[in-house]
Design a protein around this nucleic acid. Sequence first.
DNA 1: ATATATATGACTATTTTACTCAGATATCTA
DNA 2: TAGATATCTGAGTAAAATAGTCATATATAT
Lengths: 148, 148
Amino acid sequence: MRISTRGQYGLRAMCRLVLLQRAGGSGPVSLRDIAEKEDISSQYLEQLFRGLRGAGLVESVRGAKGGYILARPPEEISVADILRAVEGPIAPVECVESDSVDACCDRKDYCMTREAWIRLRDSMVETLDSINLADLCKPGELGRGSTC
Amino acid sequence: MRISTRGQYGLRAMCRLVLLQRAGGSGPVSLRDIAEKEDISSQYLEQLFRGLRGAGLVESVRGAKGGYILARPPEEISVADILRAVEGPIAPVECVESDSVDACCDRKDYCMTREAWIRLRDSMVETLDSINLADLCKPGELGRGSTC
DNA sequence: ATATATATGACTATTTTACTCAGATATCTA
DNA sequence: TAGATATCTGAGTAAAATAGTCATATATAT
Ligand code: SF4
Ligand code: SF4
């Protein structure tokens, strides 16, 4: 029951992007800068930012002095958004990925445990939807945001 | 972000144990019966029941006509209990496994993302603690409990 | 005795994860 | 225009986790 490093790094990278963007004016932030601050390989970050870009959470600027910028204000980017972008659907078991009725498991209709997974998924989604980047990067509170 | 088959099978097996126990009088239930009903290898179940027994959720009766019985009434066994028994601590990242201050990550003290994982863990634990075996095995509702 | 069933430790194949590499493309600056 | 900087893209790989098996010992009912 662990978040993969994709999810962990993805969230850290996005927080760092907020901080660097806040500190460095309006220009894009390069992955190299994020990588350095967060001690994550910049090549791995490239992979993650593919997903983030694909999900419309960041926009890219190619070429020298290029990098990434948030596509929306940090208040409008939730942790759930980021996790879905780099890790896929938030679901503890396959059969609750969506509410659609496609056949992933033939026990679905009479399964005793599925209700538990549905409730787990819902509480996870609710929690992760309720936390956004602005919350996490708020300076001054608990030392958070102070590593910039 | 998936529950492993240990967790999925563990929960299904425990639900099935409730049903078979309910149906079959007061005697112990063999893994072979659970395995057959749930289509899970009985050898794999043995591995899982090690954990369940170690956590004090079931008691074993060795020898012919032996098997397992619930150590407590189903109302007092939560999904969280079962998952912890077969999968380990409920925690999306290592650094929130416990609230103790041991060093697992040197970013811990100024990490922006840790608060998000703490809240996620708390909501997961709260939800999984609130669902017990009796809830899941209640007959008549949504066809659940009807596969016995 | 014999069949049945749990107890225990080790072992293996498969899958997933975590990461890297090479090369293409775009853009800024000198 | 040349060169440096960065993203973009598709593979490829090594390590770790997972899922599941096997063999053997022990306990109990009949
Ligand atoms: S057994 Fe139940 S919970 Fe598991 S995948 Fe099938 S329907 Fe879903
Ligand atoms: S980086 Fe932050 S969230 Fe991740 S393990 Fe370290 S302290 Fe925990």
